[in-house]
Simulated scan of single mutants.
Amino acid sequence: MASNIKEQIQADLQQAKATGQLKSERIREIVKAAVAQVASELKEGSSEIRSLVKDAVSTVIENLQDKGTEIKEEVTASIEGAIEGINTKRHEAIVKSQSELQRLQAQIDGEEEKIQQEVDVILADISESGQEKTASTKTAIDSAIDAIKNSEEVSLLQKRYAQLQAQLSIVRANLAARYGGRSEEVQNYLDEAKTWYDQARPQAEAIATQVDQKRSQIEDKLGEAGTSLARKERQIKQTLRELLLATADLFKDKEHPEQDKTIVHK
C-alpha cells in the first residue's frame, strides 16, 4: 500500500514537472487525490492512516530535493493535501449534515415568523377594541402594545442571535478551508454568513462611525473571500482569517461606549 501511493505520487509529480505545472497548488491536489483514494479503504483513526500521510509527504520531499532548501511552500502544500485527503469522507458527511441543519433552520424561521404574525394580529385586535374605551384607557392600551412591539429585550436577542450565527458561519468557513473542505462548502458558509450579517447590520447602530468602518471592512472581506475562492487562491485562508477577526471585533458589545472609555482609562 505504501509503495503504491509513493509510486502514484511520484508519477504524478514527474508528469507535472515535465509539463511545467509543478506548483504548490498542483502538489496539494496530487497528494490529496492519492491519499483520499487509499484512505477510503482504511479505518478512520488507524495507525495506517498516519503512516499514509507520512509516506505521502516524504515522497514529495524526496522528489523535490534538487530544489535545495526552497521547498517550504511545496512541503506545506503536501501536508495540506494529505490532511484534506484523509478527511474527504468526513467532509462529505459534514456537507450532508449542514444541508439538513439549513433545512431545519429554515423550518424554525418559518414557525417563528408565523408566531410573530399571529402576535401582530392579536395586538391589532386589542388596539382596535381599545378605540371604544376612554381616552386614558386607550392611551394605556396603546402604550402597553408599543412596549411589547418595541421590546428592548427582543431586539437585543434578535441582534445577538444574528451576530452569533454570522460568526459561526465564518468560523465554519475557516475550518473548512483549513482542513480540506470543498470550495462549494466554503462558499456556502460565506453566503450563510452574509445572510446573517445583513440581518444583524440594521441593529448595530452604536458608535456610528466606527461601526460603519467595520461594516465596510467586513463587506469588503466577504467579497474578497468569494473572489479568492473562485480563483482557488491560497490567499483565501488568510482572507478568511482576517474576516473572522474583523467580525469578532465588530460584534463586541458597543452598547455602552462611555463605560468602555472608563475601563480603558483605568
Rank of each mutant, 00 (worst) to 15 (best):
A106R: 06
I86E: 02
Q213W: 10
A140D: 02
L175V: 10
A206K: 06
E113L: 10
V119P: 05
Q187W: 08
D198E: 05
E128F: 13
Q167Y: 00
A124H: 03
V171F: 05
I145G: 08
N87D: 03
S169V: 04
G180F: 04
K89R: 15
T209N: 09
Y189S: 04
L168M: 14
I170F: 01
I86Q: 00
P202L: 03
Q105W: 03
E118Q: 10
S169K: 00
E185F: 13
G110A: 04
T139F: 05
R103H: 03
S169M: 00
Q98G: 12
Q163Y: 04
G181P: 02
K133Q: 03
L104T: 00
I170A: 01
Y197P: 04
G81K: 07
G81A: 03
V186G: 02
I94D: 05
Y179V: 01
D146T: 15
R90D: 12
T195W: 03
S155H: 13
I122Y: 13
G130M: 11
K149S: 03
A166H: 02
K138L: 05
V154S: 12
L156F: 13
G85V: 08
I141E: 02
K114G: 00
L156I: 14
A176T: 02
S136Q: 11
E152L: 12
G130A: 08
Y179K: 05
Q131W: 03
D191C: 09
N87L: 08
I108L: 15
